[in-house]
Computed example of a mutant assay.
Amino acid sequence: MAFSVNTNAGAMAALQSLNSTNRSMETTQSRITTGLNVASTKDDSAKYTVAQTLRGDLGKLNAVTSSLNNAKSVTDVAVAGAEQISDLLNQMKSKTLEASDAGLDVESRTAISKDLASLKKQISTVIDGSDFNGVNLLKGAGAADTTAGKVTALQSIATDETTGKAPVLEINNQGFSTMLETLPTDDFASLAGTDSVVAAGAADALTVVLDKFFNDVKGSLSVLGAGSRQIEGQLAFNSNLTDVVTSGIGNLVDADLAKESASLQALQVQQQLGVQALSIANQAPQTLLSLFQ
């Protein structure tokens, strides 16, 4: 190799090697700082675009989960209300059976009628209070009335091939307000009359109404319970799916920090050696001065 003070090939080679090491160090430090092996489309376009698509799916899953949680809260409130009403109806049925005894005196029948009126008011209060976020599945005309309050929720991020929309879970209003209207409006005064035979007949008629009301409530409890279980099942599936998608994104773009740490150590040594090699190469032209001494 010719000796020249104009061109220092050794220094240029050492500089190129040092620059390459520095670029590798920047990449490794970025991976360690962000925890990502693919932080930008510049790192790996294919993996980055797939990861971005999966991140979009995660956002949709979060929206679906939020919708299901709201529906679950509405349904759980309705279930609690319906169960309480079922208990109150059982009490009313017991009181009515007691009132059907023709041997009761007027005072006893009057006390029973007052108890029944109080229980009816409690049912009305429970219906009105079974509200969550402005939605009440008990207060309304029932499923036949399309204007009645009902709860709907997104089920998944998939779209129906026919409608092109995401599938929706729906639980209709149970119409307890209409059921309550079937009970006497006279505060059960007919049970407190002086004629024990008439009062007993009124009690028997009331028993039929209460049995119908109770059976309707049982049907509503089945509907609400099934809806609640469906929501919980969908929430569990969405939670598992979210975990799987999150893991999938991690497999695509997350950095192996143990590997990057080891790489950083090696690059630091290479950088130090590169600096020394460049220093030695820069000193080479000075050896030419000895030829002229």
Rank of each mutant, 00 (worst) to 15 (best):
A71Q: 05
A46E: 05
N282T: 14
E161K: 09
I231L: 07
D211W: 00
N70K: 12
T41I: 06
L221F: 01
A13T: 13
I123F: 02
K42H: 06
A143H: 00
Q234E: 08
M92H: 05
T65P: 13
N173E: 03
S86A: 10
Q29A: 01
K95Q: 10
A158F: 04
K165I: 02
T194N: 09
L291W: 02
K95I: 04
K120H: 08
L210F: 08
T147E: 14
A202R: 01
P184S: 01
R229W: 01
I127Y: 05
L138F: 01
L154M: 11
S108R: 15
N215V: 13
A13M: 14
I112H: 11
V217G: 06
D115L: 05
F188L: 11
A205Y: 02
D44L: 06
T41V: 12
G175Q: 11
N133V: 10
E107Y: 02
K218W: 00
L137A: 04
S73G: 14
R55A: 10
G248W: 02
A141N: 15
G10L: 13
L273I: 09
R109D: 11
G250W: 00
L206W: 13
S86L: 03
L224D: 12
V5F: 09
Q16Y: 05
V269F: 01
Q155L: 13
S239T: 15
L169S: 06
K95W: 07
A2D: 08
V275T: 12
N70G: 03
A144W: 07
R55W: 06
S228F: 02
Q272S: 15
A82D: 04
K150I: 04
N282H: 08
F3G: 02
Q286G: 00
T53A: 09
V168H: 03
A192Y: 09
S66M: 03
G149V: 00
T194V: 13
I123K: 10
V64W: 02
I112D: 13
A11I: 10
N173F: 00
S261N: 13
A111E: 04
A226V: 07
N238A: 10
D254N: 13
A236M: 07
S263K: 14
I85R: 11
N133H: 05
S222M: 03
L119C: 02
A143G: 05
A266R: 12
V209K: 14
A111N: 15
T159P: 10
T34I: 04
F214I: 04
L54K: 08
S261F: 03
I123A: 02
G274T: 11
P167F: 01
S4G: 13
D187T: 12
T33Y: 06
A202G: 03
A143E: 13
